[in-house]
Design a binder for these strands. Structure first.
Length: 203
DNA sequence: CCCGTGATTTAT
DNA sequence: TAAATCACGGGG
């Protein structure tokens, strides 16, 4: 069962936490690729210096982030990597959650074919760029509606968020330029899971 | 450590 | 028009 619209129409921190443990699915050429979400980052729109929508900047790229919760926001990073984000909150509230790692569960062979450099299954989706490649995410997915798309969606594996003790909150990766926002605990990982992009700092 | 890669944004 | 920037990953 897909996460409903109301799941996404909440603040980014709540959605980022609740996405942990849910299942990302992309059907490619009739074959399912799927994995359990292990790592997310919240981007808070207007005030967040690390967000593309800082000060609610509305550009050709960021217009997608102003859409309704449950919309995919995909952009190309460093000329190579397709980043998959989920727009959250309401229309005109430009906030999003970046998916940074999943534990692959279905379509492993197809993922390996698209990630020839991965040495093992654990390295297939342990980073936002790796995840994009393993799931064959491309720019044309930008703006896709996760409720309506026949091929790209998130399945709810559990009605409630993981209990707080199973979630580690820590600073986001790769946003050192963002001043005071660089240190805020807006990255969320499943505690102790080996499949994340960067091991969170020790408590 | 260092660098490829190209869309997007910002500066002239 | 040109330059700088960048939610990264792979190889030394």
């Amino acid at each position: 069962m897909r996460c409903p619209r109301t799941f996404y129409r909440r603040d980014p921190v709540t959605v980022a936490r609740h996405l942990l443990g849910q299942r990302l699915v992309h059907v490619v050429d009739g074959q399912r690729r799927a994995g359990i979400i292990l790592e997310t980052e919240a981007y808070l729109g207007h005030d967040d210096q690390a967000a593309h929508t800082y000060q609610s900047r509305r550009t050709a790229r960021t217009q997608t982030v102003f859409k309704d919760g449950g919309t995919a926001y995909v952009y190309l990073n460093y000329g190579i990597h397709h980043m998959l984000n989920i727009v959250v909150d309401r229309v005109d509230q430009p906030q999003a959650v970046l998916l940074r790692a999943v534990e692959p569960t279905e379509g492993l062979d197809a993922m390996r074919a698209d990630r020839p450099k991965a040495k093992n299954n654990r390295g297939l989706c342990s980073g936002p760029g790796k995840l994009g490649a393993a799931f064959a995410i491309q720019r044309h997915h930008d703006g896709a509606d996760l409720m309506e798309s026949p091929t790209l969606f998130i399945e709810q594996t559990q009605p409630k968020a993981l209990e707080p003790a199973k979630i580690v909150a820590c600073p986001r990766i790769g946003v050192d330029y963002a001043g005071p926002w660089a240190a805020k605990p807006l990255r969320f990982v499943i505690r102790g899971h080996p499949g994340v992009s960067v091991k969170p700092p020790a408590p």
